[in-house]
Structure formats: structure tokens, C-alpha cells
Simulated assay, not measured.
Amino acid sequence: MMRLEIPLTILSLVLMGGNMFFPWAPAHEIIGVLLIVVWALHVYANRRWFKAVFRGRYNPYSIMQTVVNCGMLVCALFLAISGVMLSNHVFTFLEIESGASFARTAHLLASHWYFVFIALHIGLHVNVIFSRLGVAQLVMKSRGVVVATRIAVALIGAYGVYAFIERGLWKYLTLQQPFFFMDLERGYVLFFVDYIAMIVAFAVAIIFVSSLIRLRQRG
């Protein structure tokens, strides 16, 4: 499962820049198709979890996890459908001539909510991701490393909050910004730094909420 989440995150970050990263026009659409293919593989690999969504009893943590996972899936579906409708290269053979206005709005809204959900999803699975990569064992070897890591994560998360406001991501999430704008003067490197920091901020937020829920359940 986690082997797919790494390419999912990378592809998602690249696509968040829209067409502005690519001198070759079809690139955004091709990478978008690749993202949906990886997503389909991810859903298939976790089909048992999705089959169990409407079964069993729910507690606050499982409700939160279900909302995040299903929200991410719904956004991915809207991205796929609107992407096909807006296609100027890969899917032109379908000859879709209507619904462009709806598709643009849906694509803009779904892409940014998808980004939020994938960041929250990473936060919910960060322990598993780190254990798979061998990071957890490395960090836990020294108390000093643990403290330094927590400080670094807190600082990156704080910058992520600043980037969220500075990049105006909240405007896309609430449709107050009707079209995507990228400040090219800040450059591509800062774009990735900002969006990675935002992922950290959302991940830290849901880790904190998860910890509170688990403490309350134990109490």
C-alpha cells in the first residue's frame, strides 16, 4: 500500500502546478492519467477496507479515517471526470463539447480538496510510512534526534500554515478564486517547498487530533 502512496504524493504535487510546469502541452494530461491509474491500483490494493466501509461499528477515529479516505476518493473521481471533459489532447477523440464551465470549476475545487485530503491521509499513516522506510527506527535511536525532529517538523508545519495563507489555498477550497494562479516569480523550487510544507502542516494537525481522540478513548 505505502509503495503506491509515495508516487501518488509525488504525482499529485507535480500536477498541483497545473500546465505551468510543462513546456509540452499534453504533459499535464498524461501525468493526470498516470495518477488515476496509480489511484486505481491503490484502491484495488485496499479493496478490503473499502468493502468494510458500511460494516461494523464506528468510533471517532474510524469516522475521521473514513471521511478522509472517502473524501480523497471522491475528489479523485471528480478530477478524472472533469479532466476528461477538459482534455485538449489525450481524450479529444471523445469529442466532448459541452460542460466545460462546470468541468473547470469541478477540477479546480476537486484538485485542492484532494491535496488537503491526501495530506491528511499521509498524517493518518505516517507511522506506517516511516516504518516501511526505516525512518522510525533511525529517529528513535536518540532522544536528541527525537527532539530535533519534532522541532523541525513543527517549524516546517508553521511555515506550511504561512504558505497556505500566502498561496491563497483557502480561496480555492471555498471557490473564492475562480481560476488557478501561480506566481512564477517565486519559482518552481519555492512552489514545491510551500506545498510540501503544507502537507506537513495538515499531517501534523491530524496527528494531533488523532492523539487527542485516542487519549479520550483510553480515558
Rank of each mutant, 00 (worst) to 15 (best):
A158Q: 00
N88L: 12
R167D: 07
V153R: 00
R167T: 06
F93W: 08
V90E: 05
N127Y: 09
T92I: 12
V128F: 09
S111I: 06
N59W: 05
H107T: 07
L133H: 02
C70Q: 10
L73Q: 13
S98H: 10
L86P: 07
F102W: 14
M182N: 11
V116M: 05
L94V: 02
V189A: 15
L124E: 03
Y114M: 13
V68L: 10
V84D: 04
G160D: 00
F164C: 07
F164K: 02
R150A: 04
A136S: 09
L79H: 02
I151H: 01
S131I: 05
A136I: 10
I165V: 14
F115L: 00
V74G: 06
A163R: 07
R150W: 11
V90I: 12
V67C: 09
K171L: 14
I156D: 02
I151R: 00
S131Y: 03
I129K: 00
V161Y: 08
L120K: 06
Q177P: 13
G83I: 12
L109I: 08
I151C: 03
M72E: 00
V128P: 00
V161M: 11
G168T: 09
N127A: 10
E166R: 10
L109F: 15
L124D: 04
H107R: 04
R150F: 08
H89P: 06
K171Y: 13
H89D: 13
M182W: 15
A163Y: 04
L155N: 02
Q176Y: 09
G168A: 07
A152D: 03
Y61F: 15
A119V: 02
G71K: 06
S87D: 02
Y114Q: 10
S142L: 03
D183E: 15
Q137N: 05
L73E: 10
Y188T: 15
T174P: 10
F117I: 01
V67R: 14
V116G: 00
V161H: 08
Y162M: 05
I122R: 00
C70D: 11
F78R: 06
F179E: 11
G71I: 11
A154I: 05
